[in-house]
Simulated assay, not measured.
Amino acid sequence: MHSLLKSRFESKVFESLINEKNLLNLMCFAAYGIPRALLNMISSICIEDEDGEVSVNLTAKNTLKEIKNSHDSTYNIYDSLKIKLPMYRNFIDTGSNFYEQTLKIIKEFNKGSDVGKQSSIIAIKRPVSAELEKVIGFFQYAGLLSPNSISNRGGKGVYELYEIHYAAIIDRNIFFSSKAINSEKYVEAFSNRPNHHYPRHLEASLVPEDNLDQAFSLALPSCEVCKSPRVSDKAKFCMECGAKLQDASIFEDIVSQDIELLPITTARADSIKQSSKIRKIKDILMDYDNKELRKVNMIGPAWAKKIKSYAEEFIA
């Protein structure tokens, strides 16, 4: 990251950054390996005078402000999926609660630990439901969560490890549980992250069990006539054209049916069930990137797209 900045900025600017090395390195960690994120943060604290001379206002306050802006920008990518993938609106809202709960758990876990034992990882015990995997996939798409590794605890179970975006760690002050962020201690903690020290949790402690059906339900489709989005899941008629909207219970009944009802052979349906987690039509609709379908032998991009279209036609 230092080499990148040295090549992109004048030597005078780079020297000013290096003079505040802890603050600079905190920004480097907050960029989470994405050069553009770092460049955006640094550019925001650069000041150009009337003569075109550039200076840097690298203070602790400005550093934390830009890290927060960077995290908010990344989180907005996740939140925007409610518009891009309206059918998954409930999943994304549930994911927001999962994200906050995860940050809370890691912060509590780090409380009282020394600088060499501050964790940025959450371990989730298998099996992880297809619904939560979908939510985690959305966070991976946004860059807020990264799969780290698998931890096999023998008789205690197998855990999937996910690392939290470092900008979130800094913005929410996850390390040390102190009131103010000490940039030197944070940089040291990021530089000495432990390999086997992290909170281990069941899915039930990360996602509230009450009302799970609603939390992980597919949102009802838009108006079939004019394609306008619903203003509410309880709406009976379209606000734009007045057409009757699909009933919630009917929709749930349809998406909960077996994939054998789709226009595919019984052998192919059996093959999908044996090689993936797909059982119901809902599972195909949830497989928005066709990752599960592509696990099945003899199903490439074309067939995966075709089967997805069968599922979408089935609920139309």
Rank of each mutant, 00 (worst) to 15 (best):
G33E: 07
T59F: 07
A37L: 03
L58K: 05
I34G: 00
L39I: 15
V54D: 07
I45F: 01
T59K: 02
V56A: 03
E53I: 13
K65L: 13
V56F: 02
E48L: 08
R36V: 12
N62Y: 01
I45N: 01
T63V: 13
I34W: 00
E66Y: 14
G52I: 03
E48A: 12
M41L: 10
L64M: 14
P35T: 04
I42L: 08
L58V: 11
I45L: 10
E66Q: 15
G33H: 03
P35I: 04
E66L: 09
S55G: 07
N62F: 01
N57L: 06
I47G: 02
K65N: 14
A37Y: 00
S55A: 09
L39S: 07
C46T: 12
C46Q: 12
S55R: 13
A60T: 15
D51V: 05
P35Y: 07
S43A: 15
V56C: 03
A60Y: 07
Y32C: 04
A30R: 01
N40A: 12
C46Y: 06
A30Q: 02
E50G: 06
E66F: 11
L64T: 06
S44G: 08
I42A: 02
N57P: 00
V56N: 02
P35F: 05
D51E: 10
G33M: 03
G33L: 09
A30V: 08
D51Q: 12
G52R: 01
M41E: 02
N40C: 08
V56L: 09
Y32T: 08
S44H: 14
T59M: 11
M41H: 01
E66W: 10
L39K: 05
D51Y: 07
C46P: 05
S44V: 02
E50Q: 11
E50K: 12
I34Y: 02
V54G: 01
E66M: 15
L64N: 12
C46W: 05
P35S: 09
A31I: 06
L38V: 04
L39Q: 05
E53R: 12
D49I: 12
C46N: 09
C46F: 09
I45M: 10
S43D: 15
E66D: 09
I42D: 00
K61N: 00
E53T: 08
N57S: 14
S43W: 11
N62K: 06
T59G: 08
D49M: 12
E50N: 13
A30S: 15
C46H: 06
E50L: 13
E66C: 08
L58C: 13
V56H: 04
A31K: 00
G33F: 03
E53V: 11
T59Y: 07
T59R: 08
G33R: 01
P35R: 03
E66T: 11
A31Y: 04
T59H: 09
D51C: 11
S43Q: 15
L64W: 14
N57A: 03
L64P: 04
G33D: 08
S55E: 13
I34N: 10
G52V: 04
K61A: 04
C46V: 15
S55Q: 12
N40K: 14
I47Q: 11
E50F: 10
K61D: 04
N62H: 07
E48S: 13
I47N: 04
S43E: 13
A30H: 05
E50Y: 11
